[in-house]
């Protein structure tokens, strides 16, 4: 316990951070709401939202954004879980190496990583270069959902792996051993013990990856074509190419609300799953 007179400074210590974020975080968000409600005549209304939701094209883009994020989340989970399991089960230098493997990409810029995948997949890239060397027909893999998907899985994998690994690390190995001595084969021990106990990490990971991939735009901007439009890229274009602030703000709000709603649904499903397992 601190002496009483020192408590007076509590407010002074907290105020700069709290006020700073109120002004430069909450302030901008509120202004964004206001901008999205601006109408051409000068009044306020829902015109921008009606414009977005009333046009089949925008609705399609919105759905594409959700589906892309959902697919990326699914494949990151599929590929990430075994990796996380390996991290949790290894010790010493092997563990260090696995963590190095998964953390390194995290610290390389997404623009650079996207460029790296362009080199792998591009017309004169690694795969097509190899195909050409064997006189096989080349495939153009850039400029489509496949390239975007594989790059985003690469970008998101570390978040999923680290979330799941921290949950797996928390599971006492004796629990699995207890299951084995009680007659559970390893697959059953995984299904009834390890999987349900790692659900917390899975939920954290899927929430994180979903909200990160639904907001991603660099990869889609660099690798996409006019068919692979997603909401964040559209927000960027409305702002930079059309300078349509109110519409960009409204699309941004749609993105934000979508993230929050779907995250809420995921959380609810996660809770149900955990209860069901219990």
């Amino acid at each position: 316990m601190m002496p009483n007179r020192f408590r007076l400074s509590t407010l002074a210590f907290l105020a700069p951070a709290v006020i700073g974020l109120l002004v430069f975080f909450i302030g901008p968000l509120l202004l964004n709401v206001e901008v999205s409600l601006r109408e051409q005549g000068g009044g306020h209304g829902l015109a921008q939202y009606l414009r977005a939701l009333g046009d089949a094209y925008y609705v399609k883009v919105w759905l594409q954004t959700i589906v892309l994020a959902a697919c990326v989340t699914f494949f990151t989970l599929l590929f990430g879980y075994p990796f996380a399991f390996a991290i949790a089960r290894s010790r010493g230098p092997v563990k260090g190496f696995l963590i190095f493997l998964i953390v390194t990409p995290l610290l390389i810029n997404v623009v650079v990583r996207t460029f790296g995948w362009m080199v792998v997949l591009g017309r004169s890239g690694l795969i097509n270069g190899t195909l050409r060397a064997f006189d096989l027909p080349t495939i153009n893999m850039l400029g489509g959902w496949f390239a975007i998907g594989i790059t985003l899985v690469h970008v998101m994998l570390p978040f999923m792996v680290l979330s799941i690994a921290s949950a797996l690390e928390g599971i006492d190995q004796a629990l699995e051993q207890a299951a084995l001595t009680l007659g559970a084969k390893p697959a059953a021990a995984f299904r009834y013990i390890i999987w349900p106990l790692s659900l917390d990490g899975v939920i954290t990971g899927t929430l994180l990856v979903f909200s990160l991939s639904i907001g991603s735009f660099v990869t889609v901007m660099l690798m996409g074509n006019n068919r692979t439009m997603v909401l964040p890229v559209m927000v960027y274009q409305q702002l930079n190419l059309s300078s349509d602030w109110p519409f960009a703000a409204a699309l941004g709000m749609v993105l934000l609300v979508t993230v929050l709603v779907i995250s809420g649904i995921q959380l609810a499903i996660g809770r149900r799953l955990r209860r069901g397992q219990a």
């Binding site: 975080f25 901008p28 909200s211 735009f217 964040p232 703000a249 941004g252 934000l256």
Partner: peptide, 26 residues
């Protein structure tokens, strides 16, 4: 207060970016 101070993490950064652009311009 802690949740509030950490909350910018929960936002798609592009949304934060355009909101900041509007605000700082204004």
């Amino acid at each position: 207060i802690q949740t509030f101070l950490l909350s910018p993490l929960a936002l798609p950064s592009l949304v934060l970016a355009i909101a900041l652009l509007f605000f700082l311009s204004s």
